[in-house]
């Protein structure tokens, strides 16, 4: 039977050896709170996406809601919605942010604080102000505020863009250009190669992981059991698994939400 939806239990089981573990309370709570949120928000699917750790210990759990994706003009339009929760029970929508806010949010590299109401002051880069004349006050720097939740959404967007791995051939385009699961997917021919996997954001015919920058994926394949575990070195904490025996797959992110910009020195 081909998998229709990511199975969180199987995924957690497969990813625990890579250090991706969900607290017992959270795992228990998710079973109830996610279906409730899904029904309230009217999502076709609502899947657990991962955990972004926060400085005060109240980590952000993220869920990804979707009402289906379609291809228009050779580009995938997914319109995924995200919700976050800090206790695995109360799920709050994470508003989408515009490009300008995203670039502001991207200028902060510290770990998130864990207080959703926190505001960060962002100084717009601009022309260095001319020396104020005597008697005049210096013009105040152009400061805008970026909220913690905007930063959180920016982090989630960045990680989804760079990861979100699916085995190739598990999704198809139907006659109305909607992305549908391939009910006849019968396993990958070469599960030990990066060529077998692609980013979900690129749609069914997107490039494989082998076309990413070289060295950002670390793929472990156990040919005896037919399981593959693929870890992102660019976003440490993202791990993806694929099992040929059960024809199941899944990926989660559990990390600090910080990109590994020093990767070039680390290999």
């Amino acid at each position: 039977m081909v998998m229709q939806l990511p199975n969180l239990t199987l995924t957690l089981e497969a990813l625990a050896p890579s250090g991706l573990v969900l607290a017992a309370e959270q795992q228990a709570a998710l079973q109830h709170s996610l279906p409730v949120k899904q029904a309230q928000a009217g999502f076709k699917t609502l899947n657990f996406w991962g955990k972004i750790s926060a400085r005060n210990g109240k980590d952000y759990l993220i869920a990804e809601g979707s009402n289906g994706a379609y291809v228009s003009d050779k580009r995938l339009v997914a319109n995924n919605k995200y919700c976050f929760s800090q206790d695995a029970i109360t799920w709050v929508d994470l508003e989408a942010i515009g490009e300008e806010t995203a670039s502001r949010a991207g200028s902060f590299t510290t770990q998130l604080s864990g207080e959703p109401s926190k505001m960060y002051a962002y100084t717009e880069p601009g022309q260095p102000a001319a020396e104020p004349k005597e008697g005049e006050e210096a013009p105040p720097p152009n400061v805008t505020e970026v909220s913690e939740l905007q930063r959180l959404r920016h982090t989630v967007d960045q990680i989804s863009e760079a990861t979100g791995v699916v085995p190739k051939g598990t999704q198809l385009l139907n006659a109305t250009n909607s992305v549908v699961p391939n009910h006849m997917f019968s396993g990958l021919a070469y599960p030990d190669k990066l060529e077998g996997y692609a980013h979900a954001k690129d749609g069914p015919d997107g490039p494989s992981l082998a076309e990413d920058v070289r060295g950002i994926w670390s793929l472990h394949h156990d040919s005896f059991k037919g399981t593959t575990v693929c870890r992102s070195l660019l976003w440490p904490g993202y791990v993806f698994y694929y099992s040929a025996a059960t024809c199941s797959w899944g990926g989660l992110y559990m990390g600090s939400g910080q990109k590994n910009n020093d990767l070039i020195f680390m290999l």
Partner: peptide, 13 residues
């Protein structure tokens, strides 16, 4: 204890 706080490597491992 690790399992309760979401750390460690999972019960099986």
């Amino acid at each position: 204890m690790f399992d309760a706080v979401g750390a460690g490597l999972g019960r099986t491992e």
